[in-house]
Amino acid sequence: MDMRNHDLKEDIREYWSKRSATFDLAFGHRIPPGPELEAWAAAVRDAIGPEPKRVLELACGTGEVTNVLLSLGHEVTALDFSEAMLGVARTKHAGNTRVRFVLADAERTMEPDEAYDAVICRHLVWTLTEPEQALADWIRVLKPGGRLLVFDGDWTQPTRMGRLAGLAVRLIERLIGHDPYYDGAMSEKHADIMRRLPFSDGLTAERLEPLVREAGFVNIAFPSHRSIAMAQRKDADLRNRLRTLFYRRFVLVASRPVDVAS
């Protein structure tokens, strides 16, 4: 690892560890049963197929995407490099024999070669300190034909609609008060981390695609994120419905090439 990234990675670990106890209270992190869980499950099913598979989940956090994967019958190895986050996830899924939680770095998983049918992550790629290294590791642990599934977004530049939505949220909060669990609760630390990341000026599908291709992935596609956003809005209050408009989010699906027998 480039030692220049050491302090940054420790700051990232500390930031999310401090948020672990209340992370599920922040809108957009918890995936509640009902329309939202169904939307996430459909997105996963469409990307990697309906049959139970061996899945590596990167940066599992409090185990919300883990729950989606388990609901679909997959066997899951869920890793995170925050022990505090893993503690919440382990408690949430205590007794489930189809999930194994591992303290590990998503950029260097230390998992065996060609061990997984799918590698999945949510809101991880924008935090990578060495994205090329991470992608090389992810294709290494995938079986030939295995799928990479990424849920992420450009968290630096609000859309035009997002800027208007942000103004509306600020007006609402003048009336009802600030939401202490939203990401802005640690905004100075969050902003400091973001400034030091390779994707400090924003992660977009257009920027990620060539990196994924250069890592050796094929069949790269960008399914719509719309169904997830619509499901999030379904039972949300006005403030949180507006928050779904802030940023441009995307889904990426890609495959490790199938080896050709000689």
Rank of each mutant, 00 (worst) to 15 (best):
G73F: 13
T91V: 11
E83K: 14
T22Y: 14
T77P: 07
P52E: 07
F81P: 00
A89F: 14
T62A: 02
K18Y: 07
A43K: 00
T97A: 15
E36C: 04
T77W: 12
C60Y: 01
G73K: 15
L56A: 13
G63A: 10
N67T: 14
V88G: 04
T22E: 10
R90V: 13
W40C: 01
I31K: 03
K53E: 09
V88Y: 01
V44I: 05
D80H: 08
A59Q: 03
F27G: 12
P32S: 04
P52W: 05
E83P: 06
L86E: 03
K18S: 08
V99C: 09
A41R: 06
F23R: 07
L56Q: 11
H74I: 02
D80M: 13
V88R: 06
E64H: 04
A84R: 08
F27P: 11
L70G: 03
S82G: 02
I31D: 02
H29F: 15
G95R: 13
N67P: 02
A42T: 14
P35F: 05
Y15E: 08
A41D: 07
I12Q: 12
A21Q: 13
R100V: 14
D46M: 00
A89S: 09
R98W: 04
G49C: 06
P50G: 10
F23T: 05
A41F: 01
G61R: 08
L86I: 03
P33T: 06
K18H: 10
V55D: 05
G73S: 11
E75R: 14
D24N: 09
R98H: 13
W40F: 06
A78M: 09
N67Q: 15
E51K: 09
E38M: 05
L37S: 06
G87S: 14
V68A: 01
A42R: 13
A84W: 02
A89K: 07
L56R: 10
L25E: 15
H29P: 05
A84G: 10
G28C: 04
A43G: 03
L69G: 01
T66E: 14
E36Q: 06
V102C: 12
H29K: 11
F27A: 12
L56V: 02
L69N: 04
A89N: 10
A42W: 07
R90H: 11
L72I: 12
A94K: 15
E57I: 07
P50W: 06
G28F: 00
E14V: 09
T22W: 12
R54F: 02
A43D: 00
E14A: 14
G49L: 05
L69V: 00
S71H: 09
G28T: 00
S20V: 06
V65D: 02
S71I: 13
M85I: 00
T66N: 10
K18I: 02
G61H: 13
K18F: 07
I48P: 00
R45E: 13
W40M: 01
G73H: 12
V65G: 02
D24I: 10
E14D: 07
I12W: 07
A84N: 09
V65F: 01
T91K: 15
T91S: 15
E36T: 14
D80A: 05
F101E: 04
G63Q: 10
V102E: 12
A39W: 01
K53S: 14
R19A: 15
A26I: 01
A41T: 06
E38A: 11
L25H: 14
S20W: 03
A39F: 02
T97G: 13
G28W: 00
T77E: 13
N67M: 07
W16C: 04
T22N: 10
L72C: 09
R13S: 01
K18M: 09
